[in-house]
Design a binder for these strands. Structure first.
Lengths: 131, 131
DNA sequence: TGAAGAATGTTATGTTATAACATATCATTT
DNA sequence: AAATGATATGTTATAACATAACATTCTTCA
């Protein structure tokens, strides 16, 4: 893959950890899994991966997650299940676009959009119902 | 005011700092302004103020801001100007409600909503244009 | 090959947040 | 007023997250 080519060894290692994990993971947990000597290496790799659109930070969790590079960061929202940790990614949702349009009408120039909705996913909601 | 009654001395001090500041402020800056001996006192007060709907945390800034208690947390979005620090609060916006409805249709039970849109406010955008 | 730039390593420190336990304050009942 | 219990506050330590500053190593391409 073309995008793989430009990744350095450290960046590849971090990306692999993100992929193996499959859900948000903190920088220091990445540090342990990669075996790097310091946190700096993790943060540097994450910065690049985020730049490339391969990862994103979940601000409300202080954690990082692999995203598909085609997902436009600005138009992505995360539904975070606080019970099982599952992340559902809403990409290109009409509602997000509308929110941005609403801001555009106020002459607000969006450059980054942090949308993280916490709650309980369908699985957890129904398993609770059955208790 | 009724809501004032239940606040303790520390909570009142923190609330006053938030109000005097008028924009997001970090916990350790609050610590300095209040003169408390430790960060714990700040975080405890903030927790209560947030519970009461008098303050909110801006996750992407690691900072806290006074909000009007009638603003429903779940339906609030913040437009954060990264140039001048100005915060515009969108409350009860139709777009947010629609996003929640979209999640509800996926059987996701929302309990907390973090919506923070970064960019440049109209003032900063136009002052840039004039440079 | 060897100079320039990119990547990585190393150490230290800054920043944000909470755990665990001690003490103080205040209202209520006796 | 003294004893009780609940709430609030204080204190210390540490966890968790993030970056600054500088040294070294690795590429690459003239």
């Amino acid at each position: 893959m073309d995008s793989m080519i430009r990744l350095t060894s450290n960046q590849r290692k971090v990306l692999e950890v993100l992929e193996q994990t499959g859900k948000p993971i903190g920088a220091y947990a990445i540090l342990e899994k990669t075996g790097f000597r310091g946190a700096v290496q993790v943060y540097r790799a994450l910065e690049k991966l985020i730049d490339l659109g391969l990862a994103q930070k979940l601000e409300s969790l202080h954690a990082y997650i692999r995203v598909s590079p085609k997902d436009e960061t600005e138009l992505t929202a995360f539904a975070i299940c606080d019970h099982c940790g599952h992340i559902h990614q809403l990409t290109e949702a009409r509602e997000i676009r509308q929110l941005h349009e609403c801001l555009a009408q106020m002459d607000f120039a969006v450059c980054r959009s942090v949308i993280e909705i916490h709650g309980a996913c369908s699985t957890c909601v129904s398993s609770k119902r059955n208790k």
